[in-house]
Protein backbone atom coordinates (compact mmCIF):
# COMPACT_ATOMS: atom_id res chain seq x y z
CA UNK A 1 0.00 0.00 0.00
CA UNK A 2 1.39 3.40 -0.90
CA UNK A 3 1.55 6.15 1.68
CA UNK A 4 -0.88 8.28 -0.23
CA UNK A 5 -3.69 5.72 -0.06
CA UNK A 6 -5.71 7.25 2.73
CA UNK A 7 -5.20 10.72 1.28
CA UNK A 8 -6.49 9.84 -2.18
CA UNK A 9 -9.28 7.78 -0.64
CA UNK A 10 -10.42 10.83 1.29
CA UNK A 11 -10.22 13.27 -1.59
CA UNK A 12 -11.95 10.87 -3.98
CA UNK A 13 -14.68 10.24 -1.45
CA UNK A 14 -15.27 13.99 -1.12
CA UNK A 15 -15.25 14.53 -4.85
CA UNK A 16 -17.66 11.72 -5.69
CA UNK A 17 -19.98 12.51 -2.83
CA UNK A 18 -20.47 15.97 -4.33
CA UNK A 19 -20.46 15.01 -7.98
CA UNK A 20 -21.90 11.51 -8.37
CA UNK A 21 -25.43 12.24 -7.24
CA UNK A 22 -28.72 10.55 -7.91
CA UNK A 23 -29.80 13.33 -10.30
CA UNK A 24 -26.60 13.00 -12.25
CA UNK A 25 -26.92 9.22 -12.55
CA UNK A 26 -30.47 9.68 -13.82
CA UNK A 27 -29.24 12.07 -16.48
CA UNK A 28 -26.61 9.51 -17.43
CA UNK A 29 -29.26 6.84 -17.86
CA UNK A 30 -31.17 9.15 -20.19
CA UNK A 31 -28.16 9.17 -22.50
CA UNK A 32 -25.99 12.03 -21.31
CA UNK A 33 -22.24 11.65 -20.86
CA UNK A 34 -21.43 13.37 -17.59
CA UNK A 35 -18.41 15.31 -18.72
CA UNK A 36 -18.09 17.35 -15.55
CA UNK A 37 -17.63 14.17 -13.50
CA UNK A 38 -15.13 12.62 -15.87
CA UNK A 39 -13.16 15.85 -16.15
CA UNK A 40 -12.92 16.08 -12.38
CA UNK A 41 -11.69 12.48 -12.18
CA UNK A 42 -9.09 13.10 -14.90
CA UNK A 43 -7.93 16.35 -13.39
CA UNK A 44 -7.37 14.67 -10.04
CA UNK A 45 -5.01 12.23 -11.74
CA UNK A 46 -7.01 9.11 -10.91
CA UNK A 47 -6.93 7.84 -14.50
CA UNK A 48 -3.13 7.59 -14.28
CA UNK A 49 -2.96 6.05 -10.82
CA UNK A 50 -0.46 3.25 -10.36
CA UNK A 51 1.62 4.34 -13.36
CA UNK A 52 5.13 5.59 -12.64
CA UNK A 53 5.79 9.26 -13.09
CA UNK A 54 8.51 8.64 -15.68
CA UNK A 55 5.89 6.83 -17.77
CA UNK A 56 3.50 9.73 -17.63
CA UNK A 57 1.61 8.53 -14.55
CA UNK A 58 1.09 9.86 -11.05
CA UNK A 59 2.57 6.99 -9.01
CA UNK A 60 0.78 4.79 -6.51
CA UNK A 61 0.06 1.08 -6.75
CA UNK A 62 -2.72 -1.43 -7.31
CA UNK A 63 -3.87 -1.30 -3.71
CA UNK A 64 -4.55 2.39 -4.29
CA UNK A 65 -6.41 1.58 -7.47
CA UNK A 66 -8.72 -0.95 -5.86
CA UNK A 67 -9.31 1.37 -2.91
CA UNK A 68 -10.44 4.09 -5.35
CA UNK A 69 -12.61 1.70 -7.35
CA UNK A 70 -14.41 0.75 -4.15
CA UNK A 71 -15.34 4.40 -3.76
CA UNK A 72 -16.56 4.69 -7.35
CA UNK A 73 -18.84 1.74 -6.54
CA UNK A 74 -19.99 3.36 -3.35
CA UNK A 75 -21.19 6.40 -5.30
CA UNK A 76 -22.26 4.37 -8.35
CA UNK A 77 -20.21 6.76 -10.47
CA UNK A 78 -21.26 6.40 -14.11
CA UNK A 79 -17.73 6.34 -15.49
CA UNK A 80 -15.44 3.60 -16.88
CA UNK A 81 -12.57 4.36 -14.50
CA UNK A 82 -11.58 0.70 -13.96
CA UNK A 83 -11.39 0.09 -17.70
CA UNK A 84 -9.58 3.32 -18.54
CA UNK A 85 -7.00 2.63 -15.85
CA UNK A 86 -6.26 -0.76 -17.33
CA UNK A 87 -5.95 0.65 -20.85
CA UNK A 88 -3.58 3.37 -19.67
CA UNK A 89 -1.50 0.81 -17.78
CA UNK A 90 -1.40 -1.41 -20.84
CA UNK A 91 -0.06 1.36 -23.04
CA UNK A 92 2.41 2.55 -20.44
CA UNK A 93 3.77 -1.01 -20.24
CA UNK A 94 3.86 -1.57 -24.00
CA UNK A 95 5.07 1.81 -25.14
CA UNK A 96 6.98 3.01 -22.11
CA UNK A 97 4.87 6.11 -21.81
CA UNK A 98 1.21 7.04 -21.87
CA UNK A 99 -0.83 10.16 -22.44
CA UNK A 100 -4.17 10.20 -20.70
CA UNK A 101 -7.17 9.55 -22.93
CA UNK A 102 -10.64 8.13 -22.57
CA UNK A 103 -9.73 4.64 -23.76
CA UNK A 104 -10.56 1.04 -22.94
CA UNK A 105 -9.23 -2.38 -23.98
CA UNK A 106 -11.16 -5.19 -25.60
CA UNK A 107 -10.20 -8.65 -26.79
CA UNK A 108 -10.92 -9.70 -30.33
CA UNK A 109 -13.32 -12.61 -30.58
CA UNK A 110 -11.95 -13.99 -33.87
CA UNK A 111 -13.91 -12.24 -36.61
CA UNK A 112 -11.73 -9.17 -36.39
CA UNK A 113 -14.70 -7.08 -37.48
CA UNK A 114 -16.89 -6.83 -34.43
CA UNK A 115 -16.22 -6.26 -30.74
CA UNK A 116 -18.90 -7.09 -28.22
CA UNK A 117 -19.48 -5.62 -24.75
CA UNK A 118 -17.12 -2.71 -25.12
CA UNK A 119 -17.52 -0.63 -21.95
CA UNK A 120 -18.75 2.88 -22.68
CA UNK A 121 -17.76 2.63 -26.37
CA UNK A 122 -20.24 5.35 -27.36
CA UNK A 123 -18.33 7.79 -25.15
CA UNK A 124 -14.69 6.71 -25.35
CA UNK A 125 -12.11 8.01 -27.81
CA UNK A 126 -10.30 4.78 -28.59
CA UNK A 127 -10.31 1.06 -28.01
CA UNK A 128 -7.15 -0.95 -27.71
CA UNK A 129 -8.02 -4.17 -29.50
CA UNK A 130 -5.96 -7.13 -28.38
CA UNK A 131 -5.64 -10.23 -30.55
CA UNK A 132 -3.28 -13.12 -31.22
CA UNK A 133 -1.36 -10.91 -33.57
CA UNK A 134 -0.79 -8.08 -31.10
CA UNK A 135 -2.66 -4.90 -30.33
CA UNK A 136 -4.08 -2.03 -32.33
CA UNK A 137 -5.42 1.31 -31.26
CA UNK A 138 -8.79 1.92 -32.91
CA UNK A 139 -10.21 5.42 -33.03
CA UNK A 140 -13.91 5.13 -32.32
CA UNK A 141 -14.99 8.21 -34.20
CA UNK A 142 -14.86 6.16 -37.42
CA UNK A 143 -16.67 3.04 -36.27
CA UNK A 144 -20.26 1.94 -36.13
CA UNK A 145 -21.42 1.58 -32.52
CA UNK A 146 -24.52 -0.37 -31.54
CA UNK A 147 -25.81 0.60 -28.11
CA UNK A 148 -26.05 -2.22 -25.60
CA UNK A 149 -26.07 -2.08 -21.83
CA UNK A 150 -25.74 -4.22 -18.72
CA UNK A 151 -28.40 -4.56 -16.02
CA UNK A 152 -27.38 -1.21 -14.56
CA UNK A 153 -27.70 0.63 -17.89
CA UNK A 154 -23.92 0.99 -18.11
CA UNK A 155 -22.93 0.98 -21.80
CA UNK A 156 -21.59 -2.34 -23.07
CA UNK A 157 -21.70 -1.54 -26.75
CA UNK A 158 -20.99 -3.50 -29.91
CA UNK A 159 -18.33 -1.91 -32.11
CA UNK A 160 -18.09 -2.70 -35.86
CA UNK A 161 -14.78 -1.91 -37.53
CA UNK A 162 -14.62 -1.52 -41.29
CA UNK A 163 -11.05 -0.34 -41.72
CA UNK A 164 -7.51 -1.58 -41.13
CA UNK A 165 -5.36 -0.29 -38.30
CA UNK A 166 -1.69 -0.94 -37.73
CA UNK A 167 -1.07 -3.94 -35.45
CA UNK A 168 1.77 -3.63 -32.98
CA UNK A 169 3.43 -6.57 -31.29
CA UNK A 170 3.07 -7.14 -27.53
CA UNK A 171 5.75 -8.21 -25.12
CA UNK A 172 3.39 -10.79 -23.58
CA UNK A 173 1.27 -13.47 -25.23
CA UNK A 174 -2.42 -12.96 -25.92
CA UNK A 175 -3.27 -15.56 -23.25
CA UNK A 176 -1.12 -13.82 -20.66
CA UNK A 177 -2.70 -10.45 -21.33
CA UNK A 178 -6.20 -11.95 -21.33
CA UNK A 179 -5.54 -13.64 -17.98
CA UNK A 180 -4.08 -10.48 -16.52
CA UNK A 181 -7.09 -8.46 -17.66
CA UNK A 182 -9.57 -11.03 -16.38
CA UNK A 183 -7.90 -11.02 -12.98
CA UNK A 184 -7.86 -7.24 -12.91
CA UNK A 185 -11.46 -6.91 -14.04
CA UNK A 186 -12.59 -9.46 -11.45
CA UNK A 187 -10.92 -7.66 -8.58
CA UNK A 188 -12.13 -4.30 -9.91
CA UNK A 189 -15.66 -5.59 -9.74
CA UNK A 190 -15.04 -6.98 -6.25
CA UNK A 191 -13.92 -3.50 -5.19
CA UNK A 192 -16.88 -1.79 -6.84
CA UNK A 193 -19.36 -4.32 -5.45
CA UNK A 194 -17.92 -3.78 -1.98
CA UNK A 195 -18.54 -0.06 -2.32
CA UNK A 196 -22.05 -0.58 -3.68
CA UNK A 197 -22.84 -2.91 -0.76
CA UNK A 198 -21.78 -0.18 1.65
CA UNK A 199 -24.27 2.19 0.09
CA UNK A 200 -27.07 -0.38 0.05
CA UNK A 201 -26.46 -0.96 3.74
CA UNK A 202 -26.36 2.77 4.48
CA UNK A 203 -29.63 3.38 2.62
CA UNK A 204 -31.23 0.47 4.47
CA UNK A 205 -30.07 1.70 7.88
CA UNK A 206 -31.40 5.16 7.10
CA UNK A 207 -34.77 3.85 5.97
CA UNK A 208 -35.11 1.46 8.91
CA UNK A 209 -34.75 4.42 11.28
CA UNK A 210 -36.96 6.78 9.38
CA UNK A 211 -39.87 4.53 8.42
CA UNK A 212 -42.40 3.69 11.12
CA UNK A 213 -44.98 0.93 11.11
CA UNK A 214 -47.13 -0.33 13.99
CA UNK A 215 -45.94 2.76 15.84
CA UNK A 216 -42.28 1.75 15.82
CA UNK A 217 -39.23 2.37 13.65
CA UNK A 218 -38.60 -0.61 11.37
CA UNK A 219 -35.24 -1.45 12.94
CA UNK A 220 -36.98 -2.31 16.21
CA UNK A 221 -38.46 -5.43 14.61
CA UNK A 222 -36.43 -8.60 14.91
CA UNK A 223 -37.25 -9.64 11.34
CA UNK A 224 -35.78 -6.34 10.10
CA UNK A 225 -32.74 -6.78 12.36
CA UNK A 226 -32.01 -10.03 10.54
CA UNK A 227 -31.98 -8.16 7.22
CA UNK A 228 -29.70 -5.45 8.59
CA UNK A 229 -27.29 -8.03 9.99
CA UNK A 230 -27.19 -10.00 6.75
CA UNK A 231 -26.23 -6.84 4.87
CA UNK A 232 -23.72 -5.70 7.47
CA UNK A 233 -22.13 -9.17 7.54
CA UNK A 234 -21.66 -9.46 3.80
CA UNK A 235 -20.45 -5.88 3.53
CA UNK A 236 -17.83 -6.48 6.21
CA UNK A 237 -16.86 -9.80 4.59
CA UNK A 238 -16.50 -8.12 1.19
CA UNK A 239 -14.34 -5.38 2.68
CA UNK A 240 -12.01 -7.82 4.45
CA UNK A 241 -11.80 -9.93 1.30
CA UNK A 242 -11.00 -6.91 -0.83
CA UNK A 243 -8.35 -5.74 1.63
CA UNK A 244 -6.64 -9.15 1.66
CA UNK A 245 -6.82 -9.65 -2.10
CA UNK A 246 -5.64 -6.14 -3.03
CA UNK A 247 -2.65 -6.61 -0.76
CA UNK A 248 -1.81 -9.87 -2.55
CA UNK A 249 -2.54 -8.57 -6.07
CA UNK A 250 1.02 -8.74 -7.36
CA UNK A 251 2.00 -11.92 -5.52
CA UNK A 252 2.00 -15.57 -6.54
CA UNK A 253 -1.22 -16.19 -4.64
CA UNK A 254 -3.11 -13.52 -6.57
CA UNK A 255 -5.02 -15.64 -9.05
CA UNK A 256 -6.45 -18.01 -6.49
CA UNK A 257 -7.33 -15.20 -4.11
CA UNK A 258 -9.00 -13.20 -6.86
CA UNK A 259 -10.98 -16.29 -7.81
CA UNK A 260 -12.16 -16.75 -4.23
CA UNK A 261 -12.89 -13.06 -3.79
CA UNK A 262 -14.98 -12.90 -6.95
CA UNK A 263 -16.89 -16.07 -6.02
CA UNK A 264 -17.55 -14.80 -2.53
CA UNK A 265 -18.64 -11.27 -3.28
CA UNK A 266 -20.69 -12.26 -6.34
CA UNK A 267 -22.47 -14.94 -4.33
CA UNK A 268 -23.33 -12.46 -1.61
CA UNK A 269 -24.60 -9.78 -3.93
CA UNK A 270 -28.07 -11.12 -3.72
CA UNK A 271 -27.95 -11.65 0.01
CA UNK A 272 -27.48 -7.91 0.25
CA UNK A 273 -29.75 -6.83 -2.61
CA UNK A 274 -32.56 -9.12 -1.56
CA UNK A 275 -32.47 -8.04 2.07
CA UNK A 276 -32.36 -4.37 1.11
CA UNK A 277 -35.31 -4.61 -1.24
CA UNK A 278 -37.32 -6.57 1.28
CA UNK A 279 -36.54 -3.98 3.94
CA UNK A 280 -37.41 -1.04 1.67
CA UNK A 281 -40.55 -2.78 0.40
CA UNK A 282 -42.55 -0.85 -2.22
CA UNK A 283 -40.54 2.35 -2.29
CA UNK A 284 -37.33 0.42 -3.04
CA UNK A 285 -38.68 -0.98 -6.29
CA UNK A 286 -39.59 2.37 -7.78
CA UNK A 287 -37.38 4.20 -10.25
CA UNK A 288 -37.69 7.22 -8.03
CA UNK A 289 -35.79 5.69 -5.10
CA UNK A 290 -32.02 5.52 -5.30
CA UNK A 291 -31.66 1.93 -4.09
CA UNK A 292 -31.67 0.41 -7.59
CA UNK A 293 -28.68 2.50 -8.64
CA UNK A 294 -26.71 0.21 -6.38
CA UNK A 295 -28.61 -3.08 -6.52
CA UNK A 296 -28.71 -3.11 -10.33
CA UNK A 297 -25.00 -2.46 -10.40
CA UNK A 298 -24.44 -5.32 -7.97
CA UNK A 299 -26.42 -7.65 -10.22
CA UNK A 300 -24.50 -6.45 -13.28
CA UNK A 301 -21.04 -6.57 -11.77
CA UNK A 302 -21.34 -10.06 -10.33
CA UNK A 303 -21.40 -11.33 -13.94
CA UNK A 304 -18.44 -9.25 -15.16
CA UNK A 305 -14.86 -10.41 -14.78
CA UNK A 306 -16.14 -14.00 -14.43
CA UNK A 307 -19.05 -15.12 -12.31
CA UNK A 308 -19.07 -17.83 -9.63
CA UNK A 309 -19.26 -20.64 -12.18
CA UNK A 310 -16.31 -19.34 -14.17
CA UNK A 311 -14.07 -18.98 -11.13
CA UNK A 312 -15.06 -22.18 -9.37
CA UNK A 313 -14.22 -24.01 -12.59
CA UNK A 314 -10.78 -22.40 -12.47
CA UNK A 315 -10.29 -23.33 -8.84
CA UNK A 316 -11.41 -26.93 -9.33
CA UNK A 317 -8.71 -27.30 -12.00
CA UNK A 318 -6.12 -25.97 -9.57
CA UNK A 319 -7.26 -28.30 -6.77
CA UNK A 320 -6.86 -31.39 -8.94
CA UNK A 321 -3.28 -30.57 -9.90
CA UNK A 322 -2.09 -29.01 -6.67
CA UNK A 323 -0.24 -31.16 -4.23
CA UNK A 324 -1.25 -29.15 -1.18
CA UNK A 325 -4.23 -29.69 1.07
CA UNK A 326 -6.81 -26.94 1.47
CA UNK A 327 -5.41 -26.08 4.87
CA UNK A 328 -1.82 -25.86 3.65
CA UNK A 329 -2.92 -23.48 0.95
CA UNK A 330 -5.18 -21.33 3.09
CA UNK A 331 -2.49 -20.91 5.72
CA UNK A 332 0.30 -20.61 3.16
CA UNK A 333 2.33 -23.07 5.21
CA UNK A 334 3.33 -26.31 3.58
CA UNK A 335 4.06 -29.43 5.56
CA UNK A 336 2.28 -32.13 7.40
CA UNK A 337 -1.23 -32.31 6.04
CA UNK A 338 -4.01 -31.62 8.45
CA UNK A 339 -6.64 -33.82 6.90
CA UNK A 340 -8.01 -36.86 8.59
CA UNK A 341 -7.19 -39.40 5.95
CA UNK A 342 -3.46 -38.89 5.92
CA UNK A 343 -2.76 -40.94 9.00
CA UNK A 344 -1.79 -44.55 9.39
Amino acid sequence: MSEMKSFIEETTEKMLKDLSTKELRERFEKGEWIKSLWDAIQESGLTLLGINEDQGGVGGDFEDIFAILRITGKYAAPVPLAEVLYANHFLANQEGEVKDKLRVVQFEDGSGKELKSVPYARYVEEVIVISDAGYKVVNLSRTEIVHKENLAAEPRDTVRMSFQTEIKSMDSSYEEVLEDYTNYLALSRVAMMTGAMESVLALSIFYSKERQQFGRALHKFQAIQHHLTAMAGETAAAYATLAATSAAYKTEAAKEQIAMAKIEVSTNVNVVAKAAHQLHAGIGMTYEHELHHFTRRLWAWREEGGNETYWSDQLAKIYVTRKESIWEWITNVKGAQAHAGSTI
Binding site: A237, A240, T241, Q257, A259, M260, A261, I263, E264, T267, E308, T309, W311, S312, D313, L315, A316, K317, Y319, V320, S325, I326, I330, H339, G341, S342
Partner: peptide
Protein backbone atom coordinates in the same frame (compact mmCIF):
# COMPACT_ATOMS: atom_id res chain seq x y z
CA UNK B 1 -11.75 -32.57 -0.72
CA UNK B 2 -9.03 -35.18 -0.48
CA UNK B 3 -11.41 -37.86 -1.71
CA UNK B 4 -12.71 -35.67 -4.56
CA UNK B 5 -9.19 -34.81 -5.67
CA UNK B 6 -8.35 -38.55 -5.75
CA UNK B 7 -11.48 -39.21 -7.79
CA UNK B 8 -10.86 -36.24 -10.10
CA UNK B 9 -14.38 -35.03 -9.30
CA UNK B 10 -14.34 -31.68 -11.07
CA UNK B 11 -17.98 -30.77 -10.41
CA UNK B 12 -17.65 -31.64 -6.76
CA UNK B 13 -14.49 -29.58 -6.44
CA UNK B 14 -16.26 -26.61 -8.00
CA UNK B 15 -18.72 -26.70 -5.11
CA UNK B 16 -15.88 -27.22 -2.66
CA UNK B 17 -14.18 -24.10 -4.02
CA UNK B 18 -17.23 -22.05 -3.06
CA UNK B 19 -17.05 -23.34 0.50
CA UNK B 20 -13.31 -22.71 0.65
CA UNK B 21 -13.86 -19.17 -0.65
CA UNK B 22 -16.36 -18.56 2.11
CA UNK B 23 -14.06 -19.96 4.75
CA UNK B 24 -11.16 -17.87 3.49
CA UNK B 25 -13.29 -14.75 3.50
Amino acid sequence: TKIMVEQGDHRGLMEVSKLVSRMWS
